[in-house]
Amino acid sequence: MRLPELLCGGIFLFFFISDVRPEKVEVLVAAGSQAVLPCKCRSLSSDSAIIWSKERGGTVWRKQRSGLQYRGSSWAQKGTQRVQCPHQQFERGDFSLQIDAVTKEDGGTYTCMVDVGRWVTQSVVTLRVLTGILQPSREDARLYAAVGSAASLPCIFSPGLKPSESLWEKLKPTSLFRSAVDRLPASFSSSSSPAQLPWDKSARLDPVGLEDEGRYRCSGTVEGQRLARNMKLIVAQIVQTKEKGSVTLSCQLSDSSDVTKYDWVQTTSDPNGTESVRSVLKGKTVRISPESEQNQWTCRFYGKQGVLGNITHQAQLIGGLTGPGKSSVPSRNTPTVVGLSLLLLVLLLVLAQMYKNHQRRKRIFQYPALETMVHNISNEREEKNRNRARK
């Protein structure tokens, strides 16, 4: 090949690849959210070919000039494709890749190549995925607590992260699309101790009340990204109903949709303080004898994955439990108590009267000489009256 032809070919090849500009961009997103990897080209063509690939991961998404599209097999989740390039953006030269429900494994380096016929544009994007909040490990995790107990609301970020502007909120039970903020309970505490790690933003409720059930949200800012996790607190209580000759205990939860079964454990103690389990009953509600009520009864509730929680009932705690179906039956000793009360009242009245009489006597005998003079004068007067009558 002659020199002029070589020069022409070299000039043509130079202009063909002159628009290959590997622009390096970094995208930071939280796990579970949507990531948009930018890829823009100034040259427009309706029949352009696009290839998105991941380093050491192969092709993610591509489109041929004919319009046919292909996706990598590893980018389907339960039959749903997680990656796409919106066609409505192509006319503006925007070939950005959207990744839904980002996972930690999605992090890495991606390359976008757009071939518009005469020019090839290349973009390099590094995707960083923040694992964010480790506990609760999933969105809308369910936490169970008994009335009167202390409950922990976990909010633990990845070790090493130092979230700023951390915030706890209680959400009102409104529509799914908009969460209105409610007032935090009076027993809520989110103050961190000096021993608490910087990435631990957990809170506490002590004690838990029936009105504390509901959805809570913990959030914080990490490297400019706002990370949040919602959780639901479910409150459990034991409601007692007394009937003639028996006692009914019912295990009630503010939300029992995940509960698959209940059982009751009776715990007794011997004189040495050794505890033992005497019986296990099944069901949400059990009927026991008044004698066995004096022992400790624990209701355990289960879900598909195992034990969800438990709540303990003791006879001396019944006065603090409230709820539908609870009734009070007068004790058999009530007439005896009333009779003793009346007798005590009568005795008090008698003692009060005796005290008054005693005080009156003290006032009378306070001046004995004066009393003698009055008595002598009275006797002399009577003697004169008798003498006049004889005359």
Rank of each mutant, 00 (worst) to 15 (best):
S269Y: 06
K304L: 11
K304H: 10
F177M: 13
R138N: 05
D19A: 15
W52S: 07
L370V: 12
I17T: 13
V329G: 02
F301Q: 00
I318P: 01
P207F: 04
I133R: 08
V25Q: 13
W297H: 07
S276G: 04
C112D: 04
W264Q: 05
C39M: 07
L345S: 14
L317E: 10
Q305D: 12
A146M: 04
R363M: 09
Y216E: 00
A150Y: 03
R381D: 15
S289R: 08
R226H: 05
D182S: 15
R71I: 10
Y355Q: 14
I156L: 12
C251W: 04
D100N: 13
F157C: 04
A49P: 03
S289I: 03
P324F: 02
W264D: 02
E382A: 15
G10R: 11
V147S: 01
E213W: 11
C299R: 05
M113A: 11
V329I: 10
R62A: 07
L345M: 12
L28H: 01
K170F: 02
S328N: 09
I364H: 14
Q294I: 00
L308E: 00
D200H: 02
W75K: 02
W297D: 09
L97R: 02
W52H: 00
C155H: 00
F16R: 15
R178K: 13
S328K: 05
C299E: 07
R287Q: 15
T103S: 15
P185W: 03
S269Q: 12
G132F: 01
L348Y: 03
R388F: 14
P136T: 03
L7R: 14
W61I: 01
D263P: 05
R287W: 05
K104L: 15
V374R: 15
S164G: 15
W264F: 09
Q122F: 00
S18E: 09
W52A: 06
T109K: 13
T372I: 13
S191R: 11
R226I: 09
K384S: 08
L349E: 13
F301P: 06
P38R: 04
P136L: 06
E213K: 06
N230M: 00
L349A: 14
S149H: 05
E291P: 04
L253C: 01
S152C: 08
Q98R: 13
G9L: 11
E26K: 14
P185N: 07
A141D: 12
P159A: 08
L349S: 10
A151L: 04
L171V: 05
Q64H: 10
S123Y: 09
K244I: 12
V247K: 01
Q122S: 07
A30T: 00
G339S: 13
H375M: 13
R332K: 09
G323Y: 01
A49E: 13
V116G: 02
V337I: 14
C112E: 06
R388P: 01
K284Y: 06
T126G: 09
K232P: 03
Q135E: 11
K304T: 12
S202P: 01
I133W: 00
P159F: 08
L6S: 07
R65C: 04
R65A: 12
R128Q: 13
V265L: 12
V235S: 04
L176I: 11
A389E: 13
G323I: 05
T59H: 00
